[in-house]
């Protein structure tokens, strides 16, 4: 019965996408230190994203935003039992190599950090660790999947506490998927050209009616109602960045967003957990932003 002689294989597409499958229905929380990571795990987070500054602070402080200090990532790994993700700059494959060497569980090649390459994203197939990437539309999502991304998150506009961009991106992706589903085989060639996406992936989406990898939502989620909204719009899990630790009562907000993500179809539960939460993060009107992070990545 023993399989001592049989080969086992690491880094397959199935184990990389599989971890994303395991995170479905959950909340991934941005944390900047082990104390916040512990609060996130206590609140029921399925994973944490270790970073130096939450997007709202990156926006406020300016400067170049880079990969986090390995010491901080290690401290968080030692504190929690759930998966620990970390961000690399777009195109910065050396940062990604370091994060893989640190044994992080997922790398976010993220527009929240300052891009390192204005043309190329990281060749994600060459890594054992899986990658998540942001997308604002279906073409962008399929290009990232073509490069090896194993999870897509709609970008939204990070650090704003404003859900409007996340809704725009989710609706856009959903509409473009429905367009592919209504196309006949000969139309798919032209649609693939318009989407600037690999034809086999376009055909797969047309067949399945969804992305080939899990689609999560990020960028602007700051209340339980926001989480319920994006889950009802087809997100399979949510990333919450500034929305928790920039709120008045982070522990309570974290728990409430976890409950709302699981029970998003039950408005009575979402109403209950939304009650007496204290102030959500202040947030920003997107029309007034100097820098739109979602425009980074191509």
């Amino acid at each position: 019965m023993s399989n001592g002689d049989s080969p086992s294989v690491i880094g397959t597409a199935r184990v990389k996408r599989g971890l994303a499958d395991m995170l479905r229905g959950g909340v991934i929380m941005d944390v900047v230190n082990p104390e916040q990571a512990k609060i996130a795990e206590d609140a029921g987070a399925v994973a944490v994203m270790a970073l130096e500054r939450v997007p709202a602070d990156i926006r406020r402080d300016g400067g170049v935003a880079r990969m986090s200090d390995p010491e901080m990532i290690r401290g968080i790994q030692q504190t929690v039992t759930i998966p620990v993700m970390a961000k690399a700059r777009i195109g910065h494959f050396a940062e990604a190599q370091i994060l893989q060497a640190l044994d992080v569980d997922y790398i976010d090649e993220s527009e929240v950090l300052t891009p390192a390459d204005e043309v190329n994203h990281i060749d994600k197939w060459s890594f054992t660790v899986p990658f998540v990437c942001g997308a604002t539309n279906l073409g962008e999502a399929l290009r990232r999947i073509g490069e090896g991304a194993c999870m897509i998150r709609s970008k939204g506009e990070a650090g704003t506490g404003n859900i409007v961009e996340a809704v725009r991106h989710l609706r856009t992706i959903n509409q473009q998927i429905r367009r592919l589903q209504s196309a006949d085989a000969s139309e798919l060639f032209s649609l693939a050209k318009d989407l600037q996406s690999p034809l086999p992936l376009v055909e797969e989406v047309a067949e399945r009616g969804e992305l080939p990898v899990p689609m999560f939502c990020a960028g602007g989620i700051s209340t339980p109602a926001d989480a319920s909204l994006v889950m009802q719009l087809g997100a399979q899990a949510v990333f919450v960045g500034s929305g928790i630790f920039k709120s008045e009562d982070p522990e309570r907000m974290a728990r409430a967003i976890v409950e709302a993500t699981t029970h998003y179809q039950d408005a009575a539960i979402v109403a209950k957990v939304s009650t007496g939460l204290g102030a959500a993060m202040k947030g920003a009107e997107t029309a007034t932003l100097e820098q739109r992070l979602a425009e980074r990545g191509w």
Binding site: M1, N3, V9, V15, L19, T81
Partner: peptide
């Protein structure tokens, strides 16, 4: 043992013989 085979980079596929 949680994560008894390691973190994500150690996640693997292998054939399993079931009695």
């Amino acid at each position: 043992r949680r994560n008894g085979y390691g973190r994500q980079v150690a996640s693997f596929e292998a054939p399993i013989e079931v009695r």
